[in-house]
């Protein structure tokens, strides 16, 4: 079947993503020990197929702003796939992103990150674009949305910090 839907997310992730773009493939299933988490099974012997295409939008020092296009839509797909790549989502408590995963040990840095956590009290993930074929008219419809205020402010703080640090 031809692909007639699209979902594009924007995520702020820990670390400087090495490639400008790439594809993450890896089956997803419930974590064997922690039922609240999903986990990647690269061998494909368990779980369901999942594919995420990512692209770096902006490098902000210890974090990166990425766009993620879903080929499949599995539970926690982006959160788990990005963690698998070594770039857990910023402030994603369930997957350990609410700790300082990159950066320095300076008190000032810790204060800066704690403040950023407060500005964005949730995982830094927004479903920005949604596209599908209209069921009645068959017309392709595409919707785009703004990054919400809490996330936009957090990104702005990181932008400022990375400029200042350079």
């Amino acid at each position: 079947m031809e692909k007639t839907s699209e979902r594009e997310y924007v995520a702020l992730v820990w670390g400087n993503v090495s490639e400008d773009q790439g594809t993450i493939e890896g089956h997803l299933a419930r974590h064997p020990k922690n039922r609240l988490q999903m986990a990647v099974f690269p061998d494909g012997d368990q779980g369901k197929e999942a594919v995420t295409h990512y692209k770096v939008l902006e490098r902000l020092g210890y974090v990166s702003l990425v766009s993620c296009k879903l080929e499949t839509g599995r539970t926690h797909q982006i959160r788990v796939h990005m963690k698998h790549l070594g770039h857990t989502l910023f402030n994603d408590e369930r997957y350990g992103g609410d700790k300082i995963l990159k950066g320095t040990t300076f008190t000032k840095y810790k204060q800066f990150v704690d403040n950023a956590f407060k500005l964005l009290p949730r995982q830094a993930l927004h479903a920005k674009t949604l596209g599908f074929q209209h069921p009645v008219t068959n017309e392709y419809m595409r919707f785009d949305s703004e990054i919400p205020a809490d996330m936009a402010l957090c990104i702005e703080k990181w932008r400022g910090y990375s400029k200042h640090a350079q």
Binding site: G73, K128, T129, S145, M151
Partner: peptide, 11 residues
């Protein structure tokens, strides 16, 4: 389809 609780965006 769904979006996680603490994720914002289009549905």
């Amino acid at each position: 389809h769904r979006i996680d609780k603490d994720t914002s965006g289009l549905l």
